[in-house]
Design a protein around this nucleic acid. Structure first.
Length: 778
DNA sequence: GTTGCTTACCTTTTT
DNA sequence: GGTAAGCAAC
């Protein structure tokens, strides 16, 4: 196994390059670093906080530090815990370390995202929190459907109290490390039902042998805090801990780290408080701001020398971020004095904006720049479409990074549901998803009946189905459909044993009629079939179906093929950690960026986060950053006047070159009104309504609950949360017992086999029924 | 049980 | 303006 790998080969590498490598004791890999970077790499013992500004070589420091620890024999690969936030970051880190130290990087078993490492740990100790080690990880869709069931069972109006909002709330609670028992008072949902619903949800998850994303960490916290021996084992194992993007850790992740770090811990956190942009996901900038208090004697290293951008870009970004109050403060500098000022353009509307950017892309292209060196970074994905349309029109190649996530597409989830059900018959959510996809004539009523039986008997839906098809509860047609379904599944399961999983997938899609169903859909079918093809292709790089499914549940993202020469379109969040020679930053308008919602929900804190996002955006640029805003935008199909973003005003004029042609467009079309400042343009103030439209919506929404009280405010007892069978029914039937059945009427019991009764009905004749569907009659 | 129409909601951002 | 869920009609 990994433990028997040869010693790290970095020593070879250290000697291999350059004549200077032998002259000093300084290994080759350290020689290219500046003094601060060296310090960050060589301070291996004790807590270290590396404040790495944008473009200061953070990843290089991180990977070199790891290589250094390994090369100097301080630890072996499997004794390092390395956590990142995104899969992309984890992947990149692994690649770069492999490049530095060779194949022994494979021994880095504990390198991954918080969630994937937590999942690994949880699999080993699942039984301590009432799960089996084979637990499945639910995605948001599964989660919301489950919550919807719970809400409905509790008679809560799911329009007013949406499953989505409850999911968000529960996630928020989990991010803070709150189990249902530890939920502080004041945290609530649906008038006092919050905690009960949360508890009910957790117990449903346990029944399903499943957990959600938040649970991965929350269960870890439970295990590590309740079992001192286990925590101690991990503390001994992880001799060095490295955390990337520390500014984005939430409370749960923070607590998790603390549990895994001993008092003398060699923990190194790297981050940039100015780039904290995940507050909405529970990130606490405070974690990084109070590092010194948490780890007394911690060494703080600031990386301020920027190697990425020109001084104008850095100047613009620094001026912008200076408006934030909550920061540790650092000053980026560069020796690169070349380059143009940041260009700011105000144009008439969204179409003009996409035209402008497309034109500039073509100009840049003509001057020899590759498409892939240009990026359009937007605040929210709805902004992407305008650019896509324009680019298609002009045949500018582009790729949308992020966008609708591959694994969230309906057809991919359907395929997964089939596979999950083949792999584990207990997967009720998978069952629900595909029993009737493609249509088999198993409607909602039947499905509900199946689920009811399953829940009542404490078995899986599939088990209930197997039961039901030998009874007369369901219509003959439904029964036939279900038997076919069961037979198919059994056949595929048998097939799975000796078939490669991607071939199995193809067979299943074919034989289930799924492919035919898509073929029948002329509109979306072809694209979906393409996606499925892509899916089976991607599956081939995994050993087994199991490893594949584990991977997709954690990595909701897929490695696409090698980057082609195309303009990259992505959100600002998605752009973090990347860099491009030429960056376009459209949509800098109040309400769009900063997003109104962010301000409404989190006030000044929200605004500061938006500003950090702007900072992230500008600092992605190496040579040129081009910001733009429009005077009019089509929102929800409605024209709205826009005001330039306050961030535009905050850019220091010394580093900006601005021009707006929106001024008198209406009066004299095409006339350009060049000026240095644009906020005095009379036309902006004139018909200014935005962001009123959004605010008005928010107000209506938040008032609605008070004005219209829920119909079902009183819900008796907690037990009502989960549907229970009618109390009049139950086991204990005797031969000859008179019974009543909703559909078949009165009759008497003739045979009893487990939960199945053969009843001779007075009118309907002899039928096999499930005991929960009959009542005793006198 | 399925099809086709109407309506409500939507637009943050991701593991 | 687009989409997904919900509802009435087949």
């Amino acid at each position: 196994m990994t433990d028997s790998l040869p010693a790290p080969r970095i020593s070879d590498l250290a000697r291999s390059r350059g004549p200077g490598g032998v002259a000093h004791d300084v290994p080759d890999y350290l020689s290219g670093l500046n003094p601060e970077q060296r310090e960050a790499v060589e301070t291996t013992e004790g807590p270290v906080l590396v404040l790495a500004g944008a473009g200061t070589g953070k990843t290089r420091v991180l990977t070199t530090r790891l290589a250094h620890i390994l090369a100097t024999g301080r630890a072996r690969p499997w004794e390092l815990l390395v956590v990142t936030f995104t899969n992309k970051a984890a992947r990149e880190m692994r690649e770069r370390i492999t490049h530095l130290i060779g194949p022994s990087a494979e021994g880095l078993r504990w390198l991954g995202t918080f969630h994937s490492v937590a999942a690994q740990i949880l699999r080993r100790h699942a039984e301590l929190v009432g799960l089996k080690s084979t637990f499945t990880i639910l995605d948001t869709d599964d989660q919301e459907r489950l919550l919807k069931q719970l809400l409905e069972a509790a008679n809560i109006d799911t329009k007013r109290w949406t499953p989505k909002s409850l999911a968000g709330l529960i996630d928020h609670w989990k991010n803070r490390g709150w189990t249902p028992e530890k939920l502080p008072s004041g945290e609530d949902f649906a008038n006092g039902k919050g905690q009960t619903l949360y508890a009910a949800y957790q117990s449903r998850l346990a029944t399903l042998n499943a957990c959600d994303f938040g649970d991965l960490l929350l269960h870890n916290l439970t295990i590590l805090s309740k079992h001192a021996d286990i925590a101690e084992e991990y503390r001994r194992r992880f001799r060095y801990i490295l955390v990337d993007e520390y500014q984005d850790t939430n409370v749960a992740q923070y607590l998790w780290l603390r549990l895994l770090t001993s008092s003398t811990g060699n923990v190194c956190c790297v981050g940039d408080d100015d780039q904290s942009i995940y507050g909405w996901r529970g990130a606490e900038v405070d974690n990084i701001l109070r590092f010194e208090k948490d780890f007394p004697g911690a060494k703080i290293v600031k990386l301020e020398r920027n190697y990425r951008s020109t001084s104008h870009i850095l100047g613009a970004a620094s001026g912008l971020i200076a408006a934030n109050r909550d920061r540790l403060g650092k000053t980026l500098w560069t020796e690169d004095q070349s380059g143009d000022k940041v260009r700011v353009r105000g144009v008439w509307d969204g179409e003009a904006e996409s035209r402008l950017i497309a034109d500039e892309i073509e100009t840049a292209r003509r001057s020899g720049m590759n498409y892939k060196d240009m990026a359009v970074l937007v605040r929210a994905s709805f902004q992407m479409r305008a650019f896509e349309e324009r680019f298609v029109l002009l045949a500018i190649p582009y790729v949308v990074i992020g966008g609708p996530r591959f694994f969230e597409r309906a057809e991919i989830r359907d395929a997964h549901a089939y596979l999950r059900l083949i792999q584990s018959e207990d997967d009720d959510l998978a069952f629900e998803r595909i029993v009737n996809v493609p249509k088999r004539g198993i409607g909602d009523t039947s499905v509900q009946k199946i689920l009811q039986i399953a829940r009542h008997n404490g078995v899986s839906a599939m088990a209930a189905v197997r039961d039901l098809i030998t009874s007369d509860e369901l219509q003959a047609r439904t029964r036939t459909a279900l038997s076919t379904f069961v037979r198919d599944l059994d056949r595929w399961r048998a097939l799975a044993a000796d078939t490669r999983h991607w071939l199995l997938t193809e067979t299943v899609l074919e034989e289930s009629g799924y492919t035919d169903m898509q073929k029948a859909d002329r509109a979306t079918g072809p694209a979906r079939l393409d996606n499925l093809k892509e899916l089976t292709q991607a599956m081939q790089s995994f050993e087994t179906l199991g490893t594949y499914l584990e991977h997709v549940s954690l990595v909701m993202d897929m490695d696409r093929g090698p980057a082609s020469d195309a303009v990259q379109i992505m959100t600002l969040h998605g752009a973090k950690g990347l860099e491009f020679p030429l960056v376009f930053l459209p949509g800098w308008e109040e309400g769009v960026f900063p997003s109104q919602r962010s301000i409404d929900e989190k006030g000044e804190k929200g605004l500061e986060e938006e500003r950090r996002l702007a900072y992230v955006g500008v600092t992605r640029a190496k040579q040129d950053a081009r910001i733009s805003f429009v005077a009019n935008r089509l929102v929800y199909g409605r024209w709205t006047s826009q005001l330039p973003s306050r961030f535009v005003d905050e850019l220091p004029i010394a580093h900006v070159e601005a021009e707006s042609d929106t001024g008198y467009y209406g009066a004299s079309a095409g006339m350009k009104e060049a000026k240095n400042r644009w906020d005095d343009a009379p036309s902006f103030g004139a018909g200014y309504t935005s962001p009123g439209w959004q605010r008005a919506q928010a107000v209506t929404a938040s008032r609605a609950p008070a004005a219209r009280p829920a119909r079902n405010t009183v819900i008796e007892g907690e037990g009502r949360l989960v549907a229970t069978a009618d109390p009049k029914t139950g086991a204990g039937f005797k031969k000859g017992q008179r019974v009543f059945h909703q559909k078949f009427g009165y009759g008497s019991v003739r045979v009893i086999e487990g939960n199945k009764l053969t009843v001779t009905f007075d009118k309907a004749g002899e039928k096999k029924v499930i005991d929960t569907f009959v009542e005793k009659a006198d």
